[in-house]
Structure formats: structure tokens, C-alpha cells
Write a protein that binds this DNA or RNA. Structure first.
Length: 574
RNA sequence: GCCCUGGUAGCUCAGUUGGAUAGAGCAUCCGCCUCCUAAGCGGAGGGUCACAGGUUCGACUCCUGUUCAGGGCGCCA
């Protein structure tokens, strides 16, 4: 059930019947409640095209729509049609929703969708900047799976390249000094910083570090063993963060850069055979039209460097080849920062030229900006003094714990701990997901860890209020029998909003903008809060009591499902 | 120099193929707990939608120019 689509279709049919060619109804949710529930904006444009009076045309369309018991229609302003749904219609539609088990969201035709997200660099610990890709990508995954698609999570972690030279050399040095590596690696961030400091200050160490890169790439056993140990530990760090953050990624979803190592020479051969490769300044490059660098010179995609090494262009191409060819993806989504835009455009273009991407296969970059420090500079581990993701998560849980102590001191420690976890983590994820910005934003503890207003705790709180109603009289929400009976304006507003979950999900997946879902849930919760104040539930007389219980139950289900799609949990009380 | 983003209330941000009087949250101010959880509800103030033109019945939205900010532009990822 998609109200917007339903109305759009009906108005479009009426417009055609009224003599409009190529009728577009352009039905949208009404901007103000006085305009009804929906408004059709397409009449004015149509009138303009056929050079007629818009209000007259709107009148004709209205006549075609006929006397509908369900819809109250009126021509307004310069030629809008305002649509108000009747209480009976809303009650009937809610009844269907209640029994759909999918809250009105239909299953889509299954497609294979690869979602490339999170992708931390294993040389360092995850920091606050990884939150965007990780949370937004995971939401996309959850929604796509809910819609019935076959989703392949692709965690393209960085586990190869020059930066591992100093890490391995440092490990080697510590080991030869008899240090216990496993304890040294507990704080990856410190380890990375110590290694890079040494690299900068100690020339002998730097030489050794560079030699370790060569040895690693040459398959030297000692190096590989150290590398394995480091990578294993780093993956453990990542997984701990994912688990705490309630992210669905697991070890099985990692397909690291190094996984493509063996395919890189093959890739070069294939591009050579297709006569795409050109040697330029010793490097093997692909030049394509439409890519210009400084001074209007053609911009190469460097596939193999002059020293024989492979830049990330090669690995990313190999990944495209794998995803399109082996995984047979219909759609591949890259949740990667905006600074990679040109790079990814090049990757996709070269892959298309090489025939790796079929005509029906769609590769999309969903970009976002930096997370900045208060001084407007990006978080960079090299500089030290940045915010580790684990620290942010722990701080969030701590703050939430203090708050729940204050608000609900009688709960058991166990309950308080769980609430603190769910609320704290939820707040962080929501703070990230509720933004649409492709531009940068400045990280601020208090904004990100706010528990008031448009935040996850607000939504979770609305949910607990509903559960509290059921708990008070031991009502089993799933067993409530009866009909929706809508009279109060607050009930009607809530009904309409509940029915708009499906069209919201449709809007979200167009560009995978989680903030649209956040916004919907915030409005739903807000409307529920008003309803809660205005309409007593347990003390109401029948048939209102049953109807309100049903509304509460449907609201709780929608909030819970919506939050679940955002990767945010609910609790029974807080 | 060229290309891509973006500039909306004091702050953080919405604004759905161009629609009606530009909306939230935070902060500020004023009300509301003998009543299902006040992490809440109701209300108030707060705007030259960066600037200037243009397109049209109508522009925060589309076009052009200016300006400011961020990112990118051959062997880091």
C-alpha cells in the first residue's frame, strides 16, 4: 500500500480523461494540514502546456474523479487539487497494514546488490570519520535485504601497501628486543604512531621499513607472518567496533585489497589485449576521453606504476571486475567519501571500456564529506590527537548511563547497562544518519551525544511509552481484537503518518538517503507524542480504547522496524 | 588554471521531477506532572534562502555571472 502512488495514479487517470495528454499528477504530501493530506500539483503545468485556465482544468479533473466517498477533494489556489482522506478510508487502510506483517512494504523483485562500505585502513584504528560510510552503508544493506534483495556486503579494507613497511619493521624490532607483540598491539593507534615517529626520526629504521615493503610484496615468509599477525589483530579491533555499533558486517564480509593481488597481472594482460594500455613515463596507463588534468592534458588512469607496483586504481578495477563478473551484481553501491569522486568515475569508465561492466549493471558512488575537528581540519591519525571511534562509543554509553541513573534510578544495574548501550549507540548512529550533507561537518561531542529533540532516544522513548501502556495492564499487543475508530484530529494525523511508511522507504532507496527515514520516524514519533498527550488510551471508553491500542501497537511496530532498518535497537523502558 | 560539491534562523540541519504564508532540533523566553514515563507536551521570538541578473502565472529549487568555503586534477590510498 503506497498512498501517494495510489492517489497519483487516480489523479493521472482523471487528468487523461479530462483531455490532458501525457498527464503527470505530481501528487505530494500536503505541505500544510489545512491543505488536506495530499495535494496534486500537476494541473497547473498541464494547463500551461495546453494553454487553458488552470482552475478550470482542475475543475474538470475533479469532475472526472467523481463523487468518491473516500476522498474529499477541492480546487485551491492557482489550480492545486487538495485531497483529504476520509476516516473510514484511513481505518480500512490501517486494518490492511495491521495484517500485512511488512507494514505495507511490498517485496521487490530480487536483485544482486553489492554494497561497498566501511572499508577502514587496517594499519590504523577506526576513527570517527569511519562512522559515515559504516552506518549509512549498513542502513542501505538492511533496507535492501528487507525489500528482498540478495545483498553482498563488501568490506574493502586496506591491508596492503607502503604504510605496512614501518609497522612490520617496528614489529620486527620489538620482537627482536623480546617484547610481547600481542600486548603491544592492544593499542593499535599508539603502535601506528610509534612506528611512524620512528620512520620519520630514524633513517636506519626508514630504510628497513622500505625494505620490508619490498620483502612483503616479494612474498618473504618472515614478513608475511608478521603481516598476518598484524592484520589479524587489526581485524579483531574492527570487529569489536562493529559489534558494539550493531553493524551487520562480519569477518566473512571482508574482501581486502590484498585478496586481489593475484588478479592484478591478469588485469593488466586483459587491458593490454583490449589495447587500452598505453605506456607513459614508464607507467602503464589507460587514457579515456573526458578525463582532463592540469593544463588540459589527458589524465591517465595508472594501472601499473613505473616500478612495477600497482596503485589502488588497479585494485579497485579488480574489485569491479570481480563484482560484475563473478558476483554478477545488478547494482553496486560505493559508500565512499566525496574526495574519491574523480577516482571512482575513472574506475567505472575504464571498467566499462574494458567490458567488465555489462549494460544492465549499475555502479553508483554515494558520496559524503569529511568529519572535521573544531579547527576545521580532518581527523588524521598521523597527527595523533584524534578521536578514536571506540572512545566516542564508550563516552556515549557512559553519558547515557549517567542519564538513566538520574531518570530511572530504580531499575536494576543490568537493565541500566543495557539501556545505556542501546540509547548511547543509537544516539551516535542517528546523529550520523539523520544528515544528508555531502559536504563536511564538524564533530562536536555534545551535538553527537545529545539525547533530546530530534535524536534516537526521542524515538526510543516514544516506543517505551507505548510498551509502558501495554505493560501496565498486561495487554498482549499482538492479540488486540477490534476495529480502528478514528475521530480525534490527533488520531487521524497518526493514521495518515503510519500509512506513509511504505512511500518513505521508496524515497529513501532512490539515493540511499537515510535521513529521509530519520525524518519520517521523528515526525511519526512527534505525532504520536501529541496523540499521547491529547488522547488517553487505557482510560478511554470503547470503541476508542481498542482503536487507540491498535494505533499504539502499529506505531510501536513502525518505530521498531524503522529503527531496525537504521541499525538502532529499541528497549522496553528507559 | 580547470573540474566537482556546497553557502537556508545565533548554532546544527530539513526542504521530495519548480508550487500556496521557507520548516525542525538545540539555545533563549512563557506555560504544563493529584492524569498511560516531563529523555515529554503547548506557545513566543528569531530569515535579504551568499550576492547580482535571467527564465515564468509562480524560483531556496532551473540558467548565467560574482563571491566565499571544501575536495580533486600521473605514478600515496
Amino acid at each position: 500500500m503506497n498512498l501517494k502512488q495510489l492517489l497519483d495514479d487516480r489523479v493521472a487517470v482523471a487528468m487523461t480523461a479530462a483531455g490532458v495528454a501525457d498527464a503527470k499528477a505530481i501528487v505530494k504530501q500536503a505541505q500544510k494540514s489545512e491543505f488536506g493530506h495530499y495535494q496534486a500539483n500537476g494541473i497547473m503545468g498541464a494547463a500551461k502546456r495546453q494553454k487553458s485556465n488552470p482552475r478550470e482544468l482542475a475543475g474538470k479533473v475533479l469532475k472526472q474523479l467523481g463523487d468518491d466517498m473516500d476522498l474529499q477533494l477541492e480546487v485551491a489556489g492557482p489550480g492545486f487539487i487538495n485531497i483529504t482522506l476520509s476516516p473510514d478510508f484511513l481505518a480500512g487502510a490501517l486494518k490492511k497494514l495491521q495484517h500485512s506483517h511488512r507494514l505495507g512494504i511490498e517485496e521487490a523483485e530480487e536483485k544482486v546488490v553489492v554494497v561497498d562500505y566501511s572499508a577502514p585502513n587496517l594499519a590504523k584504528e577506526m576513527h570517527i570519520g569511519h562512522l559515515r560510510s559504516t552506518t549509512i552503508g549498513d542502513t542501505a544493506v538492511r533496507i535492501l535485504e528487507f525489500l528482498g534483495h540478495a545483498v553482498v556486503r563488501a568490506n574493502h579494507v586496506g591491508d596492503w601497501g607502503a604504510q605496512f613497511g614501518s609497522l612490520l619493521a617496528y614489529m620486527d624490532q620489538l620482537a627482536s628486543q623480546g617484547e610481547e607483540l600481542s600486548s603491544e598491539l592492544k593499542d593499535l593507534e599508539k603502535f601506528y604512531q610509534s612506528a611512524s615517529a620512528l620512520f620519520r626520526s630514524d633513517e636506519a629504521f626508514a630504510i628497513k621499513a622500505r625494505s620490508f615493503v619490498v620483502r612483503l610484496q616479494g612474498g618473504d615468509e618472515r614478513c608475511l607472518a608478521l603481516w598476518e599477525e598484524f592484520i589479524t589483530e587489526s581485524k579483531r579491533h574492527c570487529q569489536a567496533v562493529y559489534d558494539q555499533l550493531n553493524i551487520t558486517l562480519t569477518a566473512n564480509d571482508i574482501r581486502a585489497e590484498s585478496a586481489y593481488n593475484d588478479e592484478l597481472p591478469v588485469l593488466v594482460n586483459e587491458l593490454e589485449e583490449k589495447q587500452l594500455l598505453v605506456e607513459s613515463e614508464g607507467a602503464k596507463c589507460v587514457f579515456l576521453d573526458g578525463f582532463k588534468g592540469k593544463d588540459d592534458k589527458p589524465l591517465p588512469a595508472i594501472i601499473q606504476k613505473s616500478d612495477g607496483g600497482y596503485p589502488y586504481m588497479a585494485t579497485d578495477l579488480a574489485a569491479v571486475r570481480y563484482r560484475a563478473g563473478t558476483l554478477k551484481a545488478h547494482e553496486v553501491l560505493y559508500f565512499v567519501g566525496t574526495q574519491q569522486q574523480l577516482h571512482l568515475r575513472q574506475v567505472f569508465a575504464v571498467a566499462a571500456a574494458a567490458g567488465y561492466i555489462g549494460g544492465h549493471q549499475r555502479f553508483r558512488h554515494l558520496p559524503f564529506g569529511w568529519v572535521l575537528k573544531a579547527d576545521n581540519t580532518p581527523f588524521k591519525t598521523r597527527d595523533g590527537a584524534d578521536v578514536k571511534l571506540v572512545d566516542v562509543l564508550n563516552e556515549a554509553v557512559d553519558r547515557a548511563h549517567r542519564l538513566v541513573n538520574e531518570k530511572n534510578p530504580d531499575l536494576s544495574l543490568e537493565e541500566k547497562k543495557n539501556i545505556a548501550k542501546v540509547v548511547g549507540i543509537g544516539a551516535i548512529k542517528y546523529a550520523e544518519l539523520s544528515k544528508n550533507r555531502t559536504t563536511d561537518y564538524i564533530f562536536d561531542w555534545d551535538t553527537m551525544l545529545s539525547f533530546e529533540g530530534n535524536t534516537a532516544p526521542y524515538l526510543q522513548y516514544a516506543y517505551t511509552r507505548i510498551q509502558s501502556i501495554f505493560r501496565r495492564e498486561n495487554i498482549l499487543a499482538t492479540e488486540i481484537k477490534g476495529k480502528f475508530h478514528l475521530t480525534d484530529p490527533a488520531e487521524l494525523r497518526l493514521a495518515v503518518k503510519l500509512l506513509q511508511f511504505s512511500e518513505t522507504i521508496n524515497a529513501v532507496i532512490e539515493d540511499y538517503q537515510a535521513n529521509i527515514l530519520c525524518n519520517y520516524l521523528f515526525e511519526l514519533a512527534g505525532i504520536f507524542m501529541s496523540f499521547y498527550e491529547a488522547c488517553p488510551v487505557l482510560k478511554a471508553s470503547e470503541p476508542h480504547r481498542t482503536s487507540r491500542l491498535l494505533l499504539c501497537h502499529l506505531t510501536a511496530s513502525t518505530l521498531q522496524k524503522g529503527l531496525d532498518l537504521l541499525g538502532i535497537e529499541t528497549i522496553e523502558q528507559m
